[in-house]
Simulated assay, not measured.
Amino acid sequence: MTRFTRAELEAARDRLVPDVVADGLHVLFCGINPGLMTAATGHHFARPGNRFWPVLHRSGFTPRLLQPSEQGELLSYGLGITNVVARASARADELTTEEYREGGRSLTRRVTRLRPRWLAVVGVTAYRVAFDDRHAKIGPQNRTIGGTRVWVLPNPSGLNAHWTAETMAEEYARLRAAAEATS
């Protein structure tokens, strides 16, 4: 993993990171917004303490542990990555409520265009704000976007201590099973 100086990471603030998407995915994973490490590398979930890639593998979505630099391989498994808010920041709490809400509107347009079977938002708080759904919980949602079903997953950030990698992988595996059942 490349080491970045504090100045290099700060220079990545507000950068946009391209989505990893295609039409008709099985699951489109949606992060909150890119962190500075993600923006500096151009690879989603790139921060070393982020558990997205290990959990994705442990849950059975990928046959091996992918590195963030291998994110393009997700498309071959019918998976993709986007974000609620496009701009990079050091922490999600730097985002405004309006950014989340506009991100939810933008995400709805993207999902309508791409038509994935499932949209998986990784972070219940971000989902609640972006979609104005204060009572959302982890798991499948009643909301659909066109024909796309929605599932809220725990945030894989290392800061989310309420979920272990194992319990997170169990929840991700529930989504995988649902996605396979609708294939």
Rank of each mutant, 00 (worst) to 15 (best):
L65G: 04
T108M: 09
S69Y: 15
T82W: 00
R128G: 02
R47P: 01
R110S: 05
A136N: 08
V124S: 05
T164H: 09
P154D: 04
R134I: 04
G49V: 12
E73Q: 12
G147T: 10
N142R: 15
G104E: 01
G147E: 14
T125F: 06
E73P: 04
S59I: 08
V84D: 10
E166S: 13
R134V: 15
G158V: 00
V55N: 01
R51I: 00
L65H: 08
L74K: 11
A88L: 01
E70F: 06
V150R: 01
T167A: 04
L159R: 13
S106K: 15
R117F: 03
T167H: 06
D93V: 10
Q141I: 14
I81G: 04
T62A: 10
H135K: 15
R47A: 14
S76L: 13
L74V: 05
I138L: 01
V129M: 06
W151I: 02
M168V: 03
L79S: 03
R91P: 00
L119K: 05
Y100V: 06
T112A: 11
P116F: 10
D132T: 12
G78C: 13
S59N: 04
T112M: 13
R134W: 11
L79G: 03
G78V: 12
R47V: 07
V152M: 14
E166A: 13
A86C: 00
F131M: 07
G104H: 06
S106F: 14
A120H: 05
L95S: 00
A161H: 06
A161M: 02
G103W: 05
G80E: 02
N142L: 12
G49T: 13
A90T: 01
G139C: 02
R117V: 00
R143G: 11
Y77K: 13
T108F: 11
L153S: 09
L95P: 03
T97W: 06
V129A: 10
R149A: 06
R87L: 11
R113N: 09
R110W: 07
P63T: 13
P156F: 12
W53D: 00
P48G: 06
N50C: 09
L114P: 09
P156M: 01
N160L: 05
E73N: 08
D132K: 12
G49E: 15
P116G: 02
E99I: 02
H162K: 13
G72H: 09
A120V: 06
A130S: 14
L74A: 07
E166H: 07
V85S: 03
L65R: 15
Y100I: 02
A120E: 04
Y100N: 10
A120P: 09
F131C: 09
W118P: 01
V122F: 01
